[in-house]
Structures are given as structure tokens and as C-alpha cells.
């Protein structure tokens, strides 16, 4: 699963910078499970299309839906270096051995 591109998401509130990340494949339960390496994973398996949220220690959040090839990343502050550092961690995390998500 490779990161293809990112695009900023415009909201109607002056909030933290938010980006939509596009990947080469849709999120599967197994790939969602890998995100546990980054932070606290909430996985709503009983929704019609399961939803997941990862809260990282530094306040970054990853939000997405199983079956979609994208997710949203909400940052804290607008620091390009921190975003790049996060991207590196995310890419490495997705290449780790699989771990299945458990229902939160």
C-alpha cells in the first residue's frame, strides 16, 4: 500500500490543517491494524462500512473508512517538517508486518 498523493481539505472552520491522503489500495482491516504502531486506534467494526480513527501522542489524527483508498490526516499546527516526518512514519508503518484491527 503506497501513498500516492495528498491534498488539503478545506473546512468551514478555522481549524487545524487537514489533508486527504490517497493510497494505491483501499484500506483493509489488516492495514488498519498496522496503524496501532502510530497511536491509539479506535475501530468501529459494526458500522455498515467500518470507520477508524488513530490518535497520535502529538495530537495528529488519522480518520478513514475501510474500503476507501483515502483517509484524512488532521495535524496540529502548520509545520511542513512535522508533516514530512509524519509521512515517513506512516509509510514505514504500512510496510510493517500485518496486525489485524480489533474492535475498540
Amino acid at each position: 500500500m503506497n501513498l500516492l498523493r495528498k491534498e488539503p481539505v478545506e473546512g468551514c472552520l478555522p481549524s487545524a490543517p487537514e489533508y486527504r491522503y490517497w493510497f494505491s489500495r483501499p484500506w483493509r482491516r489488516e492495514t488498519i491494524g498496522r496503524l496501532r504502531a502510530l497511536g491509539s486506534l479506535d475501530y468501529y467494526a459494526d458500522f455498515p462500512r467500518p470507520y477508524f480513527r488513530v490518535r497520535l501522542a502529538e495530537g495528529i489524527q488519522i480518520r478513514g473508512v475501510e474500503g476507501e483508498a483515502c483517509c484524512r490526516v488532521i495535524f496540529v499546527g502548520d509545520d511542513p517538517a512535522r508533516r514530512e516526518e509524519f509521512d515517513g512514519r506512516l509509510i514505514r508503518c504500512l510496510k510493517q508486518p500485518p496486525e489485524t484491527a480489533r474492535r475498540s
Partner: peptide, 9 residues
């Protein structure tokens, strides 16, 4: 709203 749209339609 994100969940309602993408998880529940």
C-alpha cells in the same frame, strides 16, 4: 458528518 456520509451513506 464524515462517518455518517462514508460509513452510513
Amino acid at each position: 458528518a464524515l462517518v455518517l456520509r462514508h460509513s452510513f451513506g
